[in-house]
Every structure is written in C-alpha cells, then in structure tokens.
Amino acid sequence: MNNGTADRQVVRFDSVRKVYGSKNPVVALDDVSIGFDRGTFTAVMGPSGSGKSTFLHCAAGLDRPTSGSVHLDGIDLAPLGERALTRLRRERIGFVFQAFNLLPALDVIDNVTLPVRLAGRRPDKAAVRDVLERVGLGGRQGHRPGELSGGQQQRVAIARALITRPAVIFGDEPTGALDTYTASEVLGLLREAVQRWEQTIVMVTHDPVAAAHADRVLFLADGRIVDHLDRPRADEVAERMTHLGVWAGREALR
C-alpha cells in the first residue's frame, strides 16, 4: 500500500482477526484487510452472525482485535488506553444508532451539543445553528425528543454526530426503526453529508434499499469480506444477499 492511499484512508484494517472465547473459540473476524477513503459512504452487510457488529466495534475502538491492527484517522488504536480511546471516539467519531439514543430530558440543542460539552468545550453557537439547518431542524431547537417524530429524532442524532466534525461516522442500522419514506429522507441526508461536506460514513444495514445509497457495499460472511459492489443498485444488493444466505447456511453445515 503506498503512502498516498494510506493518507486518504480514514479507517484501515490490516489482517484483523477477532476470536471470542478460548475453550470453544468463535472466530468473529477472520483476517480482514480493508480501507475506507475520506469522503466515501460504505454499507456493510451480511447474514446474521457474519461479523458485522464486531467489524463496527473494532473499527470504532469499542472492541480490540485478537490480532492485526486498526488505524483511525492515521492513529493505531492498539496502544491506546481506555481514556485515550474514549477521547478519540468523542473527538473523531460520530455514531448514529437505530434507537436514536437521545436523552429525553434534554432539548434538541442540548442533545446535539452533548459530545462537545462532555469534551469540556463550550459549543460554538454558529456551528450549532449551521448543523441544525443542515439537517432541517432549524425551527426545533427547543423541542425535546418526545415532541419529535422518529425521523426528526434521527436527524437530531445525525446533527449530534456531525457537530464535532468527526473523521468518520459509524451507523448501526440507522434507518431500522423508520418507515420507508422517512428512511429515504435520512439516507439522503447522510448522502449529502458525504457529497457536500466530504464526511466519511460506514453503515451496517440489512436493508438493500438503504445500502443502495452508499458508494460501495461490503458483504461479510463467516467473518470474512467475501464480496463487494460499487455504485450498488437495491436489486443487485438483494440478489447478493440471497446468495450469501445460502452460502452461509452451507458453511454452517460443514
């Protein structure tokens, strides 16, 4: 790999292996090497038990590989202690989850600025206004999560992920709790963050329609990257997933 390629890669896995347990070991990731360039949108898909969650957790420093290395924004995560990892996640990573994970007692502004305040910094009011306008919540600053629709709550979560200008946003089924129309709006917003603001997004999803908003889809099976699609269409993704399900079932019978 040349230095120019490495410089563009916000997240990089080099021969990552993750094994759980020792008596009856389970290989969750098996020699995974992959890079994610700045300003790209990648979807990660695979059958149940394929290693998607472990992949995301290792990428975000929430779990440590058994072997191999993970670099995030040029930093090797392996030597970092828990305090340094927490600081890195707070400053360089945004998260968007299926369940929104908003604090019900806080209004929109306080939920969005929570990562900044946890880092001990005072939120920049102009930056907060800007990010709320970007996600279409300019008139909702004083509302609490219970006063918002599901789609609006996910927009708050996206604004919270964007406010620190992170190196990467990790999405874990970010549209899983939304109806089709609202999911399309949220995915369009993520797509816009990539195209207009060069944000890097890595999203785990089971939905071929959601995956079709990405630049690239990676398919995991049995802890390995077994296929990929560039500029994917939903029907192509669905077809690959169908084949993967059959393949994974045959592997389980071995």
Rank of each mutant, 00 (worst) to 15 (best):
G176V: 08
G176N: 06
I225F: 05
R233T: 09
L189F: 13
G223L: 05
G68N: 00
T242P: 02
F13P: 08
D107F: 11
T86R: 12
F170K: 02
A161V: 04
R254W: 06
L118Y: 02
L88W: 08
I201A: 03
A238C: 03
M1S: 15
G51N: 01
D207M: 08
L62K: 06
I93N: 07
R224T: 13
D222E: 13
T180M: 05
D227I: 11
G74F: 04
V217K: 04
Q195Y: 00
S67D: 04
R89E: 08
R250N: 09
D76M: 07
G139L: 01
E236M: 01
R129Q: 15
S50H: 02
I158M: 07
S69A: 05
M1A: 13
V204G: 11
M45I: 01
W197Y: 15
Q153P: 13
V19K: 00
D31Q: 06
D172S: 03
R231V: 07
Y181P: 00
A214C: 07
P47H: 02
H71G: 00
S69E: 04
Q152C: 13
D179M: 07
I163C: 04
T54A: 01
A238E: 03
V27F: 00
A84Y: 12
D235E: 14
R8D: 09
V128I: 15
R155H: 14
T205R: 11
G94E: 10
D31P: 00
V10I: 15
R155G: 09
P79R: 04
T86G: 01
R117S: 04
G21A: 01
D76G: 10
R122S: 14
S15N: 11
S69M: 00
L148I: 10
R117M: 12
R17F: 01
F97V: 08
R165K: 15
R216G: 03
A234G: 06
A60M: 10
G61E: 06
A248F: 14
D110S: 14
A84E: 15
V32H: 00
T180A: 11
L137S: 03
R64T: 12
A105P: 01
A99I: 01
D235T: 13
R165D: 15
P104S: 05
E185F: 05
A183T: 08
V10T: 11
G46W: 08
V112N: 09
N3T: 15
R129D: 15
A183Q: 07
R38E: 06
G74Y: 04
G68D: 00
G51W: 05
G146D: 10
G136H: 12
H228L: 13
I158N: 02
S48F: 09
R17Y: 03
R8W: 02
L106A: 13
D235K: 10
H143K: 10
R216W: 03
F170A: 03
A127F: 14
M45Y: 01
F100W: 11
N2T: 15
Y20H: 11
G35L: 01
L189A: 07
A248N: 11
D235M: 00
D63A: 14
D130W: 14
V186L: 03
R196M: 12
N101S: 09
